[in-house]
Every structure is written in structure tokens, then in C-alpha cells.
């Protein structure tokens, strides 16, 4: 018979029997998010100037920004929360949030050019046209 002293795991196993479990009773017991967790991207409509730099840099094409329509959309199912858009934003309109997104996929038609589970923000029309060129183009379109 093998002596207990020669089975080094036995002592540890006995300790484990009487120690706190290492796991939690999820989902009744949820671990609070850690500081700095890359959970989801939070967008601030107030400061955004719809320049579209974030959308240009996004490696997964999860952001859709329209300067003309002043819309900002983020596809949570595509976003990999790498943080490139946050680094790119000169207005500090994007921040990393530690809350993981609960992506809501409904039967509703997603905004044009984006996929399901898209969050869309609509900015107010600017006091002045963003670009003289855009206003001119609109005028020409109306006339024709």
C-alpha cells in the first residue's frame, strides 16, 4: 500500500475540502467589473463633431459616422473593444466603459450599411452647415 506521505496532493485536497470555493454561483453572484476592463465603447453625442476619424481607423468597420446626416452608429457585435477609436478621437467623445454590452438584436431593420445590434445616435442639425461645399451640393440637388 502507498503511504499517504508519498501522495503529496492528499494534503492539498484535504485543505480544499474545508476552504472557500474558488468559483462563484453565477448568475446569482456576479463579479463586479475590474477597473480598466475593456467592456464597451461609450459615446458622447454632445462633444462629437462627426469627423469620422474613428470610423476610418476602426479595424473591424464597426463604426459608421455620417457628417452630412450627423449620425454615429456602433455595431456592438462587430466591435472588438481594441480602443483604436478612443485613441483616434480628438474630441474625447469616446471612452472605454467597464460595463459589458448587452447587445439587443431586434427584428427591426438596422441602419443602412450596418448590421444587427447597432446603437445609433442622431445629432442635432448644426447652426451653420458643416462645410460650405456640402451646403452647395445640397442646394444644387434641390434645384435639379
Amino acid at each position: 500500500m502507498i503511504e499517504l506521505a508519498k501522495l503529496p496532493m492528499v494534503r492539498r485536497s484535504l485543505r480544499n475540502l474545508f476552504s472557500r470555493p474558488a468559483t462563484r454561483r453565477y448568475p446569482t453572484e456576479v463579479r463586479p467589473p475590474v477597473d480598466g476592463l475593456r467592456g464597451s465603447i461609450r459615446f458622447d453625442l454632445e462633444v462629437c463633431n462627426f469627423c469620422g476619424l474613428c470610423a476610418k481607423r476602426c479595424p473591424t468597420l464597426a463604426l459608421h459616422v455620417s457628417r452630412e446626416e450627423r449620425t454615429f452608429a456602433i455595431e456592438d457585435l462587430r466591435c472588438i473593444t481594441c480602443g483604436v477609436c478612443i485613441d483616434a478621437c480628438k474630441q474625447h467623445g469616446l471612452v472605454m466603459s467597464d460595463s459589458t454590452p448587452r447587445v439587443l438584436v431586434t427584428g427591426a431593420e438596422p441602419p443602412e450599411g450596418s448590421g444587427p445590434g447597432t446603437r445609433l445616435w442622431q445629432g442635432e442639425a448644426p447652426a451653420r452647415p458643416a462645410r460650405a461645399g456640402a451646403a452647395r451640393a445640397r442646394k444644387v440637388a434641390e434645384e435639379t
Partner: peptide
């Protein structure tokens, strides 16, 4: 856990 605190993932 160390990775999560330092890198966010």
C-alpha cells in the same frame, strides 16, 4: 486576473 487589471482583457 492580473491580465484583466493591466490590459482590460
Amino acid at each position: 486576473d492580473i491580465f484583466e487589471r493591466t490590459t482590460g482583457g
